[in-house]
Design a protein around this nucleic acid. Structure first.
Lengths: 200, 200
DNA sequence: ATAAATACTGTATATAATTACAGTTATGAA
DNA sequence: TTCATAACTGTAATTATATACAGTATTTAT
């Protein structure tokens, strides 16, 4: 996705929101009213800019003819995470799947494709997609996505203090992972809020 | 949902389809063109009838102002199935959750809330929602929803013939269920195409 | 330094869209 | 039989909407 300006992002977000709430996109006038524009042409200009950047499409001569591109309406699925950069970096996004507000009780920032069998005792299997929320504060008992010295892992958080964090694999063949946040580089990427499995 | 006429169901389905494909609902003219009506008022009449029956809502003076009710856009979640009637009977529907075309590779007719632990070895846990497609022909190896003498169960289908059907619980503590379709009343309600779990 | 992009105001217009009113025909229920 | 519902045709008017053109001011790349 090309870099959107702050204003453009606001407008895209508003359109997304309107579609979620009303079931149909806003008109130029509605956009203008919301943002306080005195001319519908301000909205028109923004829509053209957003179209140019590929985040939406406009059907000519069609009222409310705004379609969000999959990219901007979908939720990214993260496969293997490359070392270094942020988890949501373009190179980590395997695909996007349509957003479904209301399907889970918490918001979903991304899906992570599960590797390995370290969580099978709680029914998380290889290739399952776990739904991650980045903003819920991590707490003991939650299943979290943690990055320890640049390696991304999914575990149950069983203890968290300044000097010791314990991450538990939910599989009796594995042992707890102890991390000292003062020595190791530990980042919590989010909390698991749901699971999606496709039998195909 | 009040009983829709065949025509009304066709029109509702078309609207649903348009929203899925375009991202916005059709106009009266577009509906009329699709169904060959010579007057946009035919569509208007249908919309009013559908609104009266509660399956959609119309925003006055608003182009494409059609919102599908949750009931008609969502997918039913089936909790406990009462004996007798069809699985999708109103009384079995616990709630509906928004439809998300594209989230799984097969269509979803309903979700079934899992009871018991008979499928934990394949990661299906109590209270998980399994996504069911009614129309995929059942085959060995699939996880199916079967109704045996009016009791609904989820198992792996391991053998199917005229005289013997074997349903396997995926939990080493349970034994295979053998059914003789000639003697017992066996109905396949659908095939499991996915799984949804909400950590809340 | 200059061009291009961003972020608007202001005006105007063709046309897209809703929606009312007046009918017709058929069907099933009271 | 008569009334309500369903399923349309046909016309028309108001208003909702897209969208072009002409500007202005600011910021950002080159």
């Amino acid at each position: 996705m090309k870099n959107l300006t702050k204003r453009q992002a606001e407008i895209l977000y508003y359109i997304k929101d309107e579609i979620e709430n009303n079931g149909y996109p806003p008109t130029r006038s509605e956009i203008s009213k919301t943002f306080g524009f005195k001319s519908p042409n301000a909205a028109e200009d923004h829509l053209k800019a957003l179209k140019k950047k590929g985040v939406l499409d406009l059907a000519a001569g069609t009222s409310r003819g705004i379609t969000l591109s999959n990219q901007s309406s979908g939720i990214p699925v993260i496969g293997l995470v490359s070392a270094g950069g942020p988890i949501l970096a373009e190179e980590n996004i395997e695909k996007t799947i349509p957003n479904n507000p209301g399907i889970l009780s918490h918001g979903i920032d991304f899906y992570l494709k599960v590797k390995g069998d370290s969580m099978i005792d709680v029914g998380i299997f290889e290739n399952d997609l776990i739904a991650i929320n980045k903003n819920i504060p991590v707490k003991t008992g939650s299943i979290v996505v943690a990055r320890i010295n640049d390696e991304v892992t999914v575990k149950t958080l069983t203890k968290i203090s300044d000097s010791q964090v314990i991450l538990r694999p939910e599989n009796s063949s594995y042992s707890d992972i102890e991390v000292n946040p003062k020595k190791d580089n530990l980042i919590f990427e989010g909390t698991c809020v749901g699971l999606l499995r496709d039998f195909s």
